[in-house]
Design a protein around this nucleic acid. Structure first.
Lengths: 221, 221
DNA sequence: CTAATAGTGTCTATCAGACAATATGGT
DNA sequence: ACCATATTGTCTGATAGACACTATTAG
């Protein structure tokens, strides 16, 4: 039995074969039910990242925000370039490099019905499972020294609230007292002066992230 | 006066405009004369990274090694993907995304006459100066916690020798005694038992990197 | 009362920066 | 003798992990 596939091809004005297209794929993650989850859309009988083709004269950033919004309703988030995947055969449609991006968003920001959150990665199209694995690794590395998790907590939050989110991302439990002592020293958050209740226990001091824009903790050598 | 340019275009078998090509650009750096230097080739009246087009059915990695070797004679090095640059207008030849790579190599490995080392970045073509800036930042971040600098020292080296190389990369002086005390603790090198002279002073213990393959220091949280 | 969350304190081990002092080679 | 490199040691302050203990709220 022979497997037949339709592949797209392309040729440039000099007569050489060229990529059939350029796609962008956002790996958008959230923390929901105490777990790190990834935003995927249905793609035939499998699932895929909510990306798509870049148009001529469009920057990859424009394209990735546009596909993400039209397919899932997620907008106004920060996406950072992760890596480009262009191994031959990765995309069965043809020679189509994919530039992957990462971002975090509150799970409630999902508006359109096409997107769904997954904590276990289902079968994916276009080799998207490798991209997701890389994305999780990258996000884990940035949690301690940058304000990446900001979109996952309210404007004001307690340190316990923040700790639960970080625990979900890194996948391990953290000592609450050490976390309260140490995290504020990273220079990413400040006390607001307000109190805030999280769960049933004693209300705690409310904190804010210093900046809504991407920011690294000071004093990394 | 109107500036006229030939631009390459492409169309795929579905009738849509597609990238005119895909290029790969290696940022190969060395330490020479106590300075971090970048390998560039002449490109008309400017300079550029020794990269080029990816062929159909070729992986970007194959392509980047092949262009690097044919243009500069540099071979057998490790290249790591840095970032992809695809802003419209970046490459005046047309819609041509560039996947950039980084690598380090001993300056003596340059064989072909087309390549040259630069410590000050000259005027570059195709927006390559931005790529070079990003590459330098990335390499500086990896020096402490990985064995990236291995290609820049002999098989066996003294800690002072290694320190000079790292100083050149990060651009600051390091305390010799603290460096000898601390660097071996990172778990990337081991004493060989031999002695080695570097410069005119007292001979020191010779060290080797544990692995020739890319490796991170253990115990990063 | 108990359970849940918040916060302080304490102890120890490790690490980083500054820097003194000594050791071993060349010229 | 003097310079360059190598190495050990010492001090101090910061940091991280483990963990005891207290504080404040809901139910």
């Amino acid at each position: 039995m022979v497997l037949v596939r339709m592949t797209i091809t392309a040729e440039n004005s000099e007569g050489y074969a060229s990529p059939a297209g350029l796609v962008v794929d956002p790996v958008v993650m959230t923390v929901k039910a105490g777990e790190l989850q990834v935003l995927l859309i249905r793609s035939g009988d499998r699932h895929s990242l909510p990306g798509g083709f870049v148009l001529p004269d469009q920057s990859p950033e424009e394209a990735v925000y546009s596909h993400l919004e039209s397919k899932t309703g997620v907008r106004g988030i920060y996406l950072e370039q992760l890596k480009t995947y262009a191994t031959p055969g990765r995309d069965e449609r043809g020679w189509i490099p994919s530039i992957a991006y990462i971002g975090l968003v509150e799970s409630s920001k999902l508006l359109a019905g096409d997107g769904e959150w997954f904590s276990e990665i289902p079968e994916t199209a276009y080799g998207h499972d490798e991209i997701i694995t890389d994305a999780i690794e990258r996000i884990r590395g940035k949690v301690w020294t940058s304000n990446v998790v900001r979109p996952l907590v309210p404007e004001e939050f307690t340190l316990g609230e923040l700790r639960r989110v970080i625990e979900a991302i890194v996948g391990t439990e953290l000592d609450p007292s050490n976390f309260t002592r140490d995290f504020p020293n990273a220079g990413l958050v400040r006390k607001t002066g307000n109190k805030r209740r999280f769960g049933n226990g004693r209300p705690g001091a409310a904190y804010r992230f210093l900046s809504a824009d991407p920011m690294w903790a000071p004093t990394r050598r």
